[in-house]
Amino acid sequence: QKLIRELSILTEFIGYVVSEKDVELLFKRLVERAKDLLKADCGAISISQGDNRGLYYSTTEQLDLEALQSILRKRGTTLDDLLSSQELINTEITNPTIQRLYRIRYALFMPLSTSTSLRGVIALFRMDAPFSEDDENSLFNFAFQAFQTISLQNELSKLAKTDGLTGLYNHRVFQERLKEEIMRAQRYKKRLFLLMADIDHFKRINDTYGHQTGDRVLKTVAEIIRKSVRQLDFPARYGGEEFALLLPETDCENAFKVGERIRKAIEEHEFRLDNGETFKLTISIGIACYPFDSRDREELVKMADSALYHAKESGRNRVCLYSSIAQ
């Protein structure tokens, strides 16, 4: 009966993972189902990806992240220590203040990891009964499978949204975001700037140094663009050696400054070959503005492309505003 119940909860959860796209909701559901599985009084989960501490969720408001970290510190460990050691901790909380504040006495901490950069720690708590070895096995069997499934779904979702070479958003997602940003700009009467950027003489780089070097160039240029913009900006690989960038909540002067910052950073960057030889390259950028240049999505892209073409025709390695060539 116990095994059937565990399999039923796991099967139901995996079905939920397949249908739910919101990763935050998935992790919330994971800790809630783990709590039900072990008949715990409350539970919490802390998720990180790479160097970024991401989501924290607790089934009770009082048990926030600081409280969880405090409980671990009293035991002489931290979340990072648990992730490094991958050690499951089944312990009694002897501190009377913590017992009284959070109404918990027994704790079970389990680190979660995958082959991706996604990692986490799930914690379950009881007041009246300690966790048994069977509880440990049940939590491991459920949480391990559930976390792996979420991680895989997360990676598949990323692959569907991002360009495999550069890690930037792909053309399809860019078009969706452009539509959303135009609607938002229209609703709140804001400006939206679209930058189209194209690496100058990229074919010559491929022909001279080979396609592997060309791929490294694309990855490096993408990283330079990513580091040159704000978090709310939206960089994407538009196709080939062309990149697109959406800049909401800004003005013409700052949009031009962003373009110049990217252009200058690429112009000054030394690209290095495997044999130690270095070379430099440049990029041309065209900028169009919603609603002043156009209120239509497709036309806005064409205008940014026209500004980019003008930058190329004017000698390359420059930033061109559509408004300056339309006059």
Rank of each mutant, 00 (worst) to 15 (best):
S113M: 02
I199R: 00
Y169F: 15
F202K: 06
Q145C: 12
R184D: 04
E176P: 08
A160Q: 09
N170M: 08
L118N: 01
H201V: 10
R105A: 09
A129V: 15
I182A: 01
E133R: 10
I199S: 00
S151L: 08
L165R: 08
N170R: 06
M196V: 15
R204M: 14
L118A: 03
T213P: 01
H171D: 06
E181L: 03
F142H: 03
V173I: 15
H211N: 12
E223N: 15
K158H: 12
K189H: 14
E133L: 14
G214K: 04
D198V: 05
M196H: 00
E223Q: 15
T162E: 08
H211T: 11
R172A: 13
F131N: 03
L118F: 07
T208I: 05
R105V: 04
E180F: 12
A222P: 11
L192H: 02
A146Y: 03
P111K: 01
L124M: 09
I224Q: 02
I122T: 07
K158D: 13
Q175A: 10
V173Y: 13
T220M: 13
I150A: 03
E223F: 10
R187I: 07
L139G: 05
R119N: 11
D128F: 11
R191V: 03
L165W: 04
V173A: 00
I182T: 00
G214N: 06
F125Q: 03
L192F: 02
A143H: 04
F140Q: 13
T116R: 04
Y106G: 03
L218Q: 04
L118T: 04
Y209P: 08
A129N: 13
T149G: 00
V121F: 02
E223C: 05
R126Q: 13
R184K: 13
L124Q: 07
N141A: 15
A146Q: 06
D215L: 10
G120Y: 04
S113P: 01
S117C: 05
H211W: 09
Y188M: 05
M127I: 13
Q145D: 03
R172T: 14
T114W: 04
R184Y: 10
R177Y: 07
F147R: 02
F202C: 05
D215M: 10
R172M: 08
A143S: 15
N206I: 09
F109G: 05
L192T: 05
K189Y: 07
K203N: 08
G210F: 09
L118H: 01
H201W: 13
V221Q: 02
Q175F: 08
T208Y: 06
D128S: 15
T162P: 00
L192Q: 03
D135A: 07
M183W: 02
G120E: 03
D215I: 09
Q175W: 00
D135T: 09
A185D: 05
M127V: 11
K190L: 14
S151T: 06
S151H: 05
N137C: 02
